[in-house]
Design a protein around this nucleic acid. Structure first.
Lengths: 138, 138
DNA sequence: CTTGAACCTCTAGTCACTAGAGACCCTACA
DNA sequence: TGTAGGGTCTCTAGTGACTAGAGGTTCAAG
């Protein structure tokens, strides 16, 4: 049995976050000592590792809830898990696409300003004031 | 003079967001009609366009505040504006790098699951449960 | 003068945590 | 067995950048 601190050390998830996951229904309420402290079994540790891994990959809490439900019911179809992963992948890809456009624009803006002149002549500030100077949409 | 709705239409910034920017000190409080409604001048419109452009590029409210201050003081050095833009660029680049790692992992996970089998055999779910199946760090 | 769209303020909710207060528990050591 | 001090408890409130809604007021066209 692990205390909440031991679980935190083993998974890298902060104590407050573990309690938060319990409140959100991601982690089942663990056993308690006579003095009301949480005590986790191996399955609690496994589930927290699952959650952490999914969070690291950017899955939202609700998506993780659905994935956990499927994980707990191995006889169901995995179509939903597949759909959730595809959605997440598409989401990540569209974020990348957007950030790349921003990167293009920001690097153009930043390299045209050497930081040595007056603010009145600053390319960073003029670019922000005049959208027409931009070369991409964002 | 523009009403808040006209300003919203012209910039694409929602009315509630315009008021929020005013509360945050990004937009100066505009004139008011006898009946207490906001009326903006051209300079209010220009400033909101500046803010919107900066937000679209991902600058945080505090960074935009600093940029506006510089914009209002054209005789100051533009070193700070340059630094803010460089920081924002670096931030965007590190987000891209992280998302690309996630994309690699997610597409590996998603393409190994066809959504047709049992949840118990689902590659999405097994991968989440076992970090060792991953090929990159995240 | 009326009507209805636009506007006002204020509160509370979103997401995924994070920080802190004030109190209680657990365990190792003397 | 007593105690010190680190771990844990619950609860509240804050983060960033908005967004939604309630309940009331104002504006402008007809």
């Amino acid at each position: 049995m692990f205390s909440i601190g031991a679980l935190s050390d083993r998974t890298g998830v902060k104590i407050a976050t573990i309690r938060y996951y319990e409140d959100m229904g991601l982690l089942p309420p663990p056993e308690r000592t006579a003095g009301n402290q949480r005590r986790y079994s191996q399955s609690g540790l496994d589930r927290l590792a699952f959650i952490k891994h999914a969070r690291d990959l950017g899955f939202a809490i609700d998506a993780i809830k659905a994935l956990i439900t499927l994980h707990d019911h191995p006889d169901r179809s995995c179509a939903q898990a597949n759909a959730i992963a595809q959605t997440q992948l598409a989401d990540v890809q569209s974020k990348i696409a957007r950030l790349r456009r921003l990167e293009t624009e920001l690097s153009r803006i930043a390299t045209n300003c050497y930081g040595a002149g007056r603010a009145g002549d600053c390319y960073v500030l003029t670019s922000l004031a005049d959208h027409d100077l931009c070369q991409t949409k964002h």
